[in-house]
Amino acid sequence: MSDSKAAPTVVFEVLRFHPEKDKAPYLQQYSVPVTRGMTVLEGLTWIKEHIDSTLVWRSSCRMGICGSCGMFINGVPRLACNNQISHLHSDRISVKPLPNFEIIRDLVPDLESLFDRHRSVKPYLIRKDSHEQHHPVGEYFQSHQELINYIQFAYCIKCGLCLAACPTAATSDKFIGPQSLTQAWRYTIDSRDEGAGERAEQLYSSHGVYRCHFAGTCSQVCPKGVDPALAIQLAKKEAFVRAFGIRKQRRAARVAPPVENWVRNRDIPAPPTPTIEKSRA
């Protein structure tokens, strides 16, 4: 856009806090010229480049994959990179750090509590045969429907927006939270997993799924369509039907046996010869 043509401007109202200088956070305003398709993250970058180099935030991929730039934008937790300024339909853009997390500086929340809770639900496949788990010989069988049961919940990028929107997380530092409960469910429902019993201690604890009352905002703000509220209600339903003995315990997926006497499909060309020698270590 040429300089002669005045670009429309919006006012960014950014929450500032420097832990070594400020006793309390304060709001600072910046006027930002908006170009077509400009995201909130690009607006912040423009401020840093042209007005105030001390403004701090965290971002990385700029395309809604890494989950670093979660912010409280115009009263709703959103990814700054995923939201165009023009789509907010406002000439004032309020940008604050994600609520329910401690503020490290300016717009940088401390996501450590999220990762701690994530770790606590054992977000990995657990097999009863630990030798097989640590020395795998083949893949597990899994049907398409078994994949569909959990794949949505595996899209989580750990951005923390759901926790910022959750009313229970607003008062409770013990609630495991929509993100981690969803991950607990994602592995529990995975047909290859045998760790349901271990995870149930967290999932169905007094700070687990029953502290969710379906306010539904976690699912509304999720930038990846993960739908944590759905996972949590499915976990409640599972416990309910199990308690009344309606559903039986499923058996974990078997390891696929090695394929013998295989013949290459003629339509698939052979791989190219390796350009480097295979390591013999």
């Binding site: 009263g75 709703v76 750090p97 401690e102 503020i103 607003a170 008062t171 539904g216």
Partner: peptide, 18 residues
Amino acid sequence: RLNNRLGLGGWLGGGRYG
């Protein structure tokens, strides 16, 4: 670190969520 937990206002106030 600055505590930014919304507290009781977080569950009492619906904000812009719907």
